[in-house]
């Protein structure tokens, strides 16, 4: 073996009640790299992300992180923690992903206590640092989630995910539930975190513009299959697959023609 190999996903499959939702998805995310997964709503993005963090059991395929197989459910505390430090997830909707009973600073501290029980002395300091990294201060730390805005909550969720110091951070539509103006702030924040921390990003979105901001590589998902992968810039400027072209055309901009898109959408079934 020559150094860490990153996240390697091969032939991942999942069905619900006989309907295949993720159908042989493969991709690679190098250490510290960034990969976007784009596709229309319902194409299996969230299901894929959930399988990667172990919230959903895959029907088939393998997931390796730096050569370690993640397909099996971990046994025991050490395995569980190790696995958690591999991949963390930021959920789509920050209005339901934070425990309403727990002040947000404490919820980040909990993660530190779980994963780094030994550095008791500077735990508070690390928590403050994590919050600072997402632009939150002591005042916000003492609040319950319901006292914070959607953008602030998502910042907390990002800090909470980073608290475990994961190798890979999955962001599942992490800005979709937020106002457009707030979206830009969070995307800037994420770009900064990526530069500063070296954590690999798996950025899941139905929005190509969002992916363009943040990822070097992109995989286009359609009906549970990857139809195109490549450097984000190339895929977005010279799409090879008709479906990618369609997705690109669906982004409103100058010369945008909804009629042509609708017609195109009907054509390549």
């Amino acid at each position: 073996m020559s150094g860490p190999t990153g996240l390697v996903v091969e032939g991942l499959r999942k069905g619900f009640g006989g309907r295949t939702v993720v159908d042989g998805v493969s991709f690679t995310l190098p250490p510290g790299g960034s990969l976007g997964i784009v596709g229309e709503s319902g194409c299996g993005k969230t299901t894929t992300a959930r399988m990667l963090v172990g919230l959903e059991r895959a029907d088939g395929g393998t997931v390796h992180l730096d050569g370690v197989d993640r397909s099996m459910r971990p046994r025991g505390r050490a395995g569980r923690l190790e696995r958690a430090r591999g991949i963390q997830l930021v959920f789509q909707d920050p209005y339901v992903s934070l425990d309403p009973r727990i002040p947000v600073g404490a919820c980040i501290e909990e993660v530190r206590r779980l994963h780094f029980p030994l550095d008791r002395a500077d735990r508070r300091h690390r928590v403050a640092e994590l919050l600072d990294q997402v632009g939150l201060g002591e005042r916000e730390a003492a609040e319950l989630p319901r006292r914070l805005s959607g953008g602030q909550r998502q910042r907390v969720a990002i800090a909470r995910a980073l608290a475990a110091e994961p190798k890979v951070l999955i962001l599942d539509e992490a800005v979709a539930a937020l106002d457009v103006s707030i979206q830009a702030q969070i995307l800037d924040l994420l770009a900064g975190i990526r530069r500063a921390s070296g954590v690999a990003f798996l950025f899941v979105s139905h929005d190509l513009a969002v992916v363009r901001h943040l990822t070097e590589e992109v995989a286009v998902l359609r009906g549970g299959r990857v139809v195109e992968t490549g450097p984000t810039v190339r895929v977005l400027t010279e799409p090879q697959h008709p479906y990618t072209r369609l997705l690109l055309d669906s982004v409103p901009r100058r010369g945008w023609d909804p009629g042509r898109i609708a017609a195109g959408r009907r054509a390549p079934a």
Binding site: V53, G54, R77, R80, A84, D99, V111, R160, A164
Partner: peptide
């Protein structure tokens, strides 16, 4: 619910999640 799922993603044991977070809720 995502708030409980997030505890699983963080690596807490099912037992801890149930006692500390599910039961109070």
């Amino acid at each position: 619910r995502p708030y409980l799922e997030s505890y699983r993603v963080q690596g807490w044991s099912g037992w801890t999640i149930c006692v500390r977070h599910l039961l109070p809720n």
